[in-house]
Structure formats: C-alpha cells, structure tokens
C-alpha cells in the first residue's frame, strides 16, 4: 500500500449544535438519558419539496455529506461508503407497525423503498449523479469503522483517489426503549451522523492523516499490548461511557499496556449509538487540527494532555467483541 490517506473535511450532526464545532468551546451536556440529534437548517442544502419526502436519517446524511463536500477540494467523489448499524429505522418501524396492524395488505411502497440500509448511500449518489464505487456496512458498533477501513484500504492501494465516508444512525423512541432492555451498557443514548472526505493527496485544508485502520474480532486483550507498543507517544481516544460493562474491556487494555498513556473520551459529550465511533473519529480529527484538547474530554482523575497532541489512536469496541484501532496523525508533523 504505497499511497497515503488524508482527511480533507468533516461534518457532523449529533446532540451538539449541528454542522459546526461549537461543542469544542461551548458543549451541551444533557441530564436526559436519551437525546435525539439537533436538526440542522436544511435550507441551501435540500429543497423543501425534497426534504418533505425524506426521513430524518436521510436528511441528516445529505446535510453532512453536502457540507463535507463543500468544505473539501473534491467535487465528485470516487466512492461513497457508508456505515449504519440499524439503517433506516424510522421507515422500517413504520412498515412493521403497518404489517402488524393491517396485515399483509395495503402497505406503503415508499416505506419499503426507503427502509434498506443502502438507501442512504444510494440517495447521496443519486443526488450527485455519482457513478463511483458505492457500498454500505452494517456491523453493530463498528459500522463506521468498516466504512473507513474500506475507504482507507482503497485509497492506500491506489484504487481510488478520494472517498466520501459517512456513518449515520437514528434511534426512534421505541428503539431507545428496546436498547435500554437489551444493551444495558448504553448510558446516554443519542443519534449520530458524520461525513468525511478522505483524499490520497494532501491539500491546503487537510485536517489530519489516517495512518492505519484495523478491525479485529475477539482479540486476546493481553496480546493487544504488543499492538500498542508503537502508540507510546500517542493519545488514546477511547469509547468509554461510564458503564462498567462497556468500559471493562478498555480498562483491561490499559492495564495490559507497558506504559501509562494519555487517555481521552468523547461519549460523555456525544453519547451512544451504533455510529458513535464516527463522532469519536470526528472529535479526534478536530483535536489534531486545532492542536488543543477540550478539558471535558479528559477522563476524570487522569493526567491532562497539555499541548496539542501529535497523534491520536482511536480505540473502539462493540460489545467487547468487534474492535477497531484507527491511527490518526497531525499533518504539520507528517513531513509533507
């Protein structure tokens, strides 16, 4: 893999103020355990008539995609690669409700047509008339990480020059109730939409470099320490959320390391959902770009990162089963 892979632009919609970085200086902290995304102003991005036909997740995905592309040097991406753990839940749920209430008659085609996971990635391609590579990953809490892995692999291998990578999940009120029963390790349930433009070449606006993306299944956590030897000088960004069952695998990892790393978190701000790791990626990229770390991202009691870090290693697990390790590096120090 001879090429390099850079982040050219990013955009987010979450429980923080959408399509901007106000969270960095004036974060919103919630006392509610379930908060939906703050809806963006779609004016200038989606026409009113188009917006009426789109579910929330589709509107958010289009808004982050268009915003990221506008902020980047790329007009037409070579690839559109999307992650979504649960897909278009709002439409799927409505179709299931109708199926339960009315039986197998008089169902609405639009709900079905916009219920598949790849509706999101396809809609972006249809709106842009983008005939490039188009793929969707749906693998629990590493859905974004899988989409990023695919884009990174193809850019590093020289198969594509750039990619629009995103991850989007919506959590309906009913899904939140189900998640409380089935995923007790979720603390603060939210929604997430993130889009990023990745490029092979470094440009004026380059945010940071994606050095490495690894996906692992049930790794031997004690053996992971070896994998992290090269991260001695790095800041680790972990998916800890304050729940013991969610945090235990991260703590085992830290216990096994032969050094004491500087550790950051993001879920206290951005919450939990299948696409949460995309917001961890987003926040890590911004930290590298801005060369500073907001105080609320430090773990309570942990040593603070003083200056802007040179590099961040993002560690994410889903149910302690599927893991991802993403290594990011500041561009000022990556030597051109």
């Amino acid at each position: 893999m001879a090429e390099r892979c850079f982040v050219d632009s990013l955009a987010q919609i979450s429980c923080q103020k959408p399509l901007c970085d106000e969270w960095f200086d004036t974060p919103c902290f919630y006392t509610d355990r379930y908060v939906r995304s703050v809806e963006p102003d779609v004016k200038g991005i989606i026409s009113a008539s188009e917006a009426r036909r789109m579910s929330r997740i589709l509107k958010r995905a289009v808004c982050t995609s268009v915003s990221a592309l506008r902020a980047s040097s790329v007009d037409m991406p070579d690839a559109v690669i999307t992650g979504t753990g649960a897909g278009c839940m709002e439409n799927s749920e409505k179709f299931l409700v109708d199926l339960g209430r009315f039986g197998e008659q008089c169902l609405k085609p639009t709900l079905f047509m916009q219920s598949t996971h790849n509706t999101i990635s396809s809609l972006i391609a249809i709106m842009m008339k983008c005939h490039g590579y188009n793929n969707t990953y749906s693998h629990k809490g590493i859905s974004f990480d899988s989409a990023l892995f695919d884009a990174w692999l193809q850019i590093r291998s020289g198969m594509i020059g750039n990619a629009l990578v995103g991850s989007h999940d919506e959590v309906t009120p009913f899904m939140e109730l189900v998640m409380r029963r089935t995923h007790p390790d979720c603390r603060f349930v939210t929604e997430a939409s993130v889009s990023a433009v990745l490029t092979r070449s470094r440009g004026e606006n380059t945010v940071c470099e994606v050095e490495d993306v690894k996906l692992l299944h049930k790794p031997d956590i004690s053996a992971l320490a070896d994998l992290f030897e090269e991260d001695r000088d790095r800041v680790l960004m972990l998916g800890v959320n304050g729940s013991e069952s969610n945090d235990a695998p991260y703590m085992s990892l830290l216990d096994g390391l032969r050094y004491r790393p500087l550790v950051l978190r993001y879920r206290n701000l951005f919450g939990d959902c299948f696409s949460a790791s995309a917001l961890g990626f987003y926040a890590s990229c911004r930290i590298l770009e801005r060369e500073s770390v907001p105080a609320f991202m430090h773990l309570p009691g942990a040593e603070h990162v003083s200056a802007g870090p040179e590099s961040v290693t993002l560690v994410n697990h889903s149910d302690g089963i599927d893991w991802s390790i993403v290594r990011l590096k500041r561009v000022a120090s990556c030597g051109g």
Binding site: T84, G85, A86, G87, T116, H117, N118, S121, N134, N135, T136, Y137, S138, H139, K140, I142, S143, S146, F149, K214, L215, L216, H217, K218, F274, S318, I321, D322
Partner: peptide
C-alpha cells in the same frame, strides 16, 4: 440487526481474525 447475523454465522464456523457486514 445485520451485524448480529454475521457474528453468529462466523462464530459457529470458526475464530476469525476480523469480520464485517456489507448491506447493499
């Protein structure tokens, strides 16, 4: 969910290094 299907299929087949799910 899709990812759960993949996990259950894979884990009944062997201890794979990594896995993911495409949904197009």
């Amino acid at each position: 969910d899709c990812g759960c299907s993949t996990r259950l299929i894979a884990e009944a087949t062997g201890d794979f290094l990594m896995m993911t799910t495409t949904s197009t």
